[in-house]
Design a protein around this nucleic acid. Structure first.
Length: 497
RNA sequence: GGCGGCGUAGCCAAGUGGCUAAGGCAGCGGUCUGCAAAACCGUUAUUCACCGGUUCAAAUCCGGUCGCCGCCUCCA
């Protein structure tokens, strides 16, 4: 059947899409996440059809972002981008903890006012996120700006009988919250309390109870770090901060709550206790936890000198893009063993990807190749399917590398026409809305660079090798690497760290 | 002691009941090249920590053993 107008408008009607096809397609593309709450992979169904509410526990503003923080940022970014690519309108908030023991202590040590101290770290965190190519969240709330609602929540919890006051601090009474432990599987009767902590330091009625509001100390009072309440001068504890901010921005039940696995107990458990005791509704429907980043098989530790900050790596000459790729490439639910060997491998992988995209951009087009469209469709389907299946990035990248392997020989023989190159680049642009590591910009060469490349080709044609090498050195000095191929030179801007 | 995770090639890493166990790095062999570097191609696990079971069929499910890691404390 031939339709005079090309038939597009008919294709979108039910006339051409049988039910069977639609079902298969939606099954493949249905977004699935591993939910820590149910310990199962589940099809993602947000509360509203088009909108997703998404909260990530952010960092504490008293230190520079280390690789463990970076992995959390990257994983949250991936979730954010995957949701976006599925057409959801994502409301994504990540907090900064700027009011707690560590920040207060840090400010004291630095002899700085608390806000000044935390402000500088928050600025650094944001710079690090930029370096890692992380997409802006909807908002980055700070704990210090939501204390009013924390006090409000606390007073509600006291009214409902879930919290008690003792010596000017307010504690959450865990025995009152019967569902406690449903996320972590922690059985309170079997927890070894006081294993490493001196119980004499506690004024709580039960050691497993946790602080909602803490009585401000003398030095805190002196620094103005206190909030006047009916119970006295206090400041909030950590668990209530996340609970207050997530519900304030995203409502009583949010779609996705994410962070690193080690926070499941007690932080997330406590957050759930606070929020659910207050509203009677689940705090989040999907809990996504990434595994830890390890160095030499262990969690990074200051004593073992295995803490690496992003700044350390940037100083060593690695780029944010390389770190992003490294942190991206391992499935988020697997432990990631960091090493410089691995970072170098990430660098090589990127180099391979760059080599491919540069050839695509620089080499002159040739004749069309019959199989390219099929390869491309196959790759895109594999890529999207892998990401939809609990963000399987290793598998998604496998599809990309596999594609490159198939296209490389075609490309070097000059068997791609202009349309096909454009088509490949457009697909890569799509992948890059999630990956954000590919270099896909047309190289707009400065006229002087362009001239040098042409000069070198001229010299090579005349077998003036000395001149050709001089020009190559000159180009290198200007930051361009030249790779000769049978189809002509390919140039690449050298990586700037 | 409790809860949870992991163990797949020299290294990294997918695959969680059935097509030849993805992909990357390193290695080896080759192509291209004025040179150089790069690039490109080919090749690399009869077997998934170990033992036993279920099944027509297991890396994948079940039971056990061993090894590694995290959490179980305030804080993040």
């Amino acid at each position: 059947m031939i339709l005079p107008d090309g038939g597009e408008k008919y294709l979108s009607t039910t006339l051409f899409s049988t039910k069977k096809v639609t079902e298969t397609k939606s099954n493949e593309e249905q977004l699935r996440f591993y939910n820590s709450l149910t310990k199962k992979k589940e099809v993602f169904r947000p509360i509203s059809k088009k909108k997703v509410t998404f909260y990530a526990c952010g960092p504490t503003a008293h230190e520079h972002a280390n690789l463990s923080h970076c992995r959390r940022f990257i994983v949250a970014d991936l979730i954010n981008r995957v949701l976006g690519s599925k057409g959801f309108n994502v409301h994504f908030y990540m907090n900064f903890t700027d009011l707690d023991d560590n920040t207060i202590l840090g400010a004291e040590k630095a002899k700085q006012p608390l806000t000044e101290f935390t402000e500088s770290y928050i600025r650094e965190f944001k710079a690090d996120m930029d370096a890692l190519g992380i997409k802006q969240a909807t908002g980055y709330p700070r704990a210090s700006q939501h204390v009013e609602s924390m006090i409000d929540i606390t007073s509600q919890l006291i009214d409902k009988g879930y919290a008690y006051e003792k010596h000017g601090s307010i504690y959450f009474d865990i025995s009152k919250f019967k569902r406690y432990g449903k996320l972590s599987g922690a059985d309170l009767s079997k927890i070894q309390i006081g294993k490493t902590v001196d119980l004499d330091n506690y004024e709580k009625e039960n050691p497993v109870d946790f602080t909602l509001l803490k009585r401000s100390t003398l030095s805190e009072l002196k620094e103005g770090i206190f909030y006047k309440t009916d119970w006295g001068n206090v400041r909030p504890g950590w668990h209530i901060e996340c609970a207050a901010m997530s519900t304030h921005f995203l409502g009583e039940t949010i779609d996705i709550h994410t962070s690193v696995r080690e926070l499941i107990f007690p932080h997330h458990e406590n957050e759930i206790a606070i929020a659910e005791a207050m509203t009677g509704k689940p705090l989040a429907n999907y809990w996504l936890h990434n595994e830890q980043l390890l160095v030499e098989g262990k969690k990074m530790s200051t004593e073992a000198k295995t803490v690496f900050t992003l700044k350390d790596l940037l100083t060593k000459g690695y780029s944010g893009r390389e770190v992003r790729f490294l942190l991206l490439a391992t499935h988020y639910r697997k432990p990631l063993h960091f090493s410089f060997k691995k970072l170098d491998e990430a660098r090589k992988n990127l180099k391979k990807l760059d080599g491919f995209t540069q050839k695509l951009l620089c080499l002159p087009p040739g004749l069309p190749h019959p199989k390219v469209a099929a390869y491309l469709t196959e790759m895109e389907e594999l890529f999207c399917g892998a990401l939809a299946n609990d963000i399987n990035m290793s598998r998604a990248m496998g599809a990309v590398f596999d594609f490159i392997k198939k296209i490389n020989p075609i490309l070097s023989k000059g068997q791609l026409d202009l349309e096909q190159k454009k088509y490949i680049l457009e697909t890569f642009e799509k992948l890059n809305t999630i990956l954000n590591v590919l270099k896909l910009k047309e190289c707009p060469l400065a006229p002087e660079i362009d001239k040098l490349i042409k000069d070198r080709e001229e010299a090579r044609r005349n077998k003036d090798w000395e001149r050709a090498d001089t020009v190559r050195d000159e180009l290198a000095q200007k930051g361009f690497e030249i790779v000769d191929t049978p189809k002509g030179p390919v140039w690449k801007e050298l990586e700037k760290a």
